[in-house]
Simulated assay, not measured.
Amino acid sequence: MTDQTVSNAIAVRDTGPAAMVEQYRAEYAALMPSHINPDQWVRLAVGAIRGDKNLVTAAQNDVGVFLRELRTAARLGLEPGTEQFYLTPRKSKAHGGRKIIKGIVGYQGIVELIYRAGAVSSVIVEAVRANDSFTYTPGRDERPVHGIDWFGAERGDLVGVYAYAVMKDGATSKVVVLNRQQVMAAKAKSDGAHSDYSPWNTNEEAMWLKTAARRLAKWVPTSAEYMREQLRAQAEVAAENPSDSALPPAPLETTDPDDEDDEPIEAEFVDDDQTGGEA
């Protein structure tokens, strides 16, 4: 490889989507909750985009959308490119069928938001497989009894999932139990579920867990109020210093027919019937 080739490669890298994340480091840091380490967050975002050529291509197709999705992750205080906040390439009708970046809050992100509210001591979200034992009778049992033979034969196919939280006072929250049919119904509402890059296809069990965690989030405190206070403070600062934010504005066309519209809105989990689906 010649010196000129190396120089060209560096120039492309330094003007690509990853470089844009670095460029707007301060702006993303201003959006994050105070407990988030901005340097670590940026490293995760840059590592995720540089480590997958499909993500690079999708981000280059519309860098503004990519930066907007990262803005959502920053506001929620979730780690991009992890099971807290997936970054996936998704075909967009508004972009002529080309792929753009779609951010999807994962089950670990939902659990993080529940913990952050400070009302629970633990959150349990588990998948049940065909060879596991599982018993739970609402009204009789406080919590499910789930038996797993960790050292025996294969656990078998996914058959269900459940979630509950133990509150700080020791009480048990509502227990959410979903069977395969219910999980598949949630999957069917997701416009992007059949994409090769959808977490439904790359990490199916995690999406089963997300479906249960998302239902649980309706019954336990989340960090919604915490996030509202953060955003209110940021809005006040922005109003006083309108030139401080250098992040590109979100595109005027903020919705896309291919989008999954079930994600948290500023950390509030909206009802399935209102959203039309789960990621």
Rank of each mutant, 00 (worst) to 15 (best):
R50M: 12
D39R: 06
V46W: 03
R71Q: 12
Q23H: 15
A45D: 01
D39P: 07
V21E: 00
A30P: 05
V46K: 04
T57D: 09
G47W: 09
D52K: 02
K53A: 15
S34I: 09
G51S: 10
T57Q: 13
V46R: 03
V42G: 01
Y28R: 08
E22T: 05
A29D: 08
V42H: 05
A30C: 12
N54L: 10
V46T: 09
V46E: 02
P33I: 03
A58N: 06
L55T: 00
G64P: 09
A29T: 06
R43S: 10
Y28L: 13
Y24P: 03
G47L: 07
N37L: 02
D52S: 05
L70D: 01
A45P: 04
A59F: 07
L31T: 00
P38Q: 07
A58M: 05
A58D: 02
T57A: 15
M32A: 06
K53L: 12
N54Q: 06
R43F: 12
R25E: 15
A45N: 04
N37V: 00
I49G: 02
P38H: 01
N54E: 15
F66M: 12
G47H: 12
L31A: 05
D62W: 08
M20N: 12
E27G: 14
R43N: 10
L70C: 08
A29R: 09
E69S: 08
L70Y: 07
A48W: 02
R68H: 15
W41K: 02
M20F: 11
Q40M: 03
A26K: 08
G47A: 14
A30N: 12
R25Q: 15
Q23D: 05
P38V: 00
N37D: 14
N54R: 14
I36K: 07
Q40L: 01
Q60L: 11
M32E: 01
G47P: 04
N61I: 01
R25T: 07
L44E: 05
F66W: 08
V56C: 06
R50H: 10
A30H: 09
R71T: 10
Q40A: 06
A59V: 05
Q60V: 03
V63P: 12
R50S: 13
Q40W: 00
G47T: 04
S34M: 14
T57E: 14
I49Y: 03
Y24T: 03
I36V: 13
F66C: 13
V56E: 07
P33W: 02
V63H: 07
R71E: 13
L55Y: 06
V42D: 00
L55C: 00
Y28N: 10
L44K: 04
V63R: 05
